[in-house]
Simulated assay, not measured.
Amino acid sequence: MNATQFGFNPEYAEEAPTLDEINSLKGVAVLEFGAPWCGHCQASHDAVKETMQSYSDMAHIKVFDGKGKRLGRQFGVKLWPTLIVLKDGQEVSRIVRFTASDAVRKLLDTAI
C-alpha cells in the first residue's frame, strides 16, 4: 500500500486501516488518533490542519479511537490527540496533547 492513497481527511475515519495495512505503507505518513467529541482533539484541530497544508505530499490518516478500537491499542495510544509519524510503516516519532502548529511542524520535520 502506498501512503499517498490516503489524503487529508477532516473527519476521523470509523473504519481504521489494519496494522498490516499500516506496516505496508511506503513513504511518510501521519496517523492521528482521537475522537470527534474530544475537547483536546478539537483544540488541536487547527494546528494539524494548518501544518498539514505545508506537507500536502504526506499522507494524513485520522483514526477514530476509543473502546473496542484495535489500532490505537496496537500503537499504545493512551491520550488524545496522538500524532504518530511513520516512515515506510514504522514509527519514527509522536506527540500527544499538543495545541500549537509549531509542535506539529517540529514533529513532521523529524521524518523528512
Results as ranks from 00 to 15, higher is better:
residue 29 A to V: 01
residue 74 Q to G: 06
residue 94 R to E: 00
residue 90 Q to A: 15
residue 23 N to G: 09
residue 49 K to D: 11
residue 33 F to G: 05
residue 3 A to S: 14
residue 80 W to V: 04
residue 58 M to L: 12
residue 97 R to V: 08
residue 21 E to L: 03
residue 95 I to F: 08
residue 59 A to Y: 03
residue 98 F to I: 03
residue 78 K to G: 13
residue 10 P to M: 07
residue 51 T to E: 13
residue 74 Q to F: 10
residue 24 S to T: 13
residue 73 R to N: 14
residue 8 F to D: 12
residue 1 M to C: 05
residue 72 G to R: 03
residue 46 D to A: 15
residue 45 H to T: 12
residue 79 L to K: 10
residue 24 S to M: 06
residue 84 I to N: 00
residue 29 A to S: 12
residue 27 G to K: 04
residue 106 K to E: 15
residue 80 W to Q: 11
residue 52 M to P: 00
residue 52 M to T: 02
residue 78 K to N: 12
residue 45 H to A: 15
residue 77 V to H: 07
residue 78 K to V: 13
residue 94 R to Y: 00
residue 70 R to H: 12
residue 84 I to H: 04
residue 47 A to I: 02
residue 112 I to D: 10
residue 14 E to K: 12
residue 92 V to G: 02
residue 23 N to Q: 15
residue 104 V to D: 08
residue 35 A to F: 06
residue 62 K to Q: 12
residue 71 L to V: 05
residue 22 I to V: 15
residue 68 G to I: 02
residue 82 T to H: 08
residue 51 T to H: 09
residue 70 R to Y: 06
residue 20 D to Q: 14
residue 98 F to R: 02
residue 25 L to D: 04
residue 29 A to G: 04
residue 71 L to W: 07
residue 102 D to P: 01
residue 101 S to H: 10
residue 88 D to R: 07
residue 31 L to F: 04
residue 24 S to G: 12
residue 41 C to E: 10
residue 33 F to T: 05
residue 20 D to K: 10
residue 8 F to I: 09
residue 87 K to H: 09
residue 48 V to R: 03
residue 52 M to K: 04
residue 108 L to Q: 03
residue 46 D to W: 00
residue 18 T to H: 11
residue 94 R to L: 00
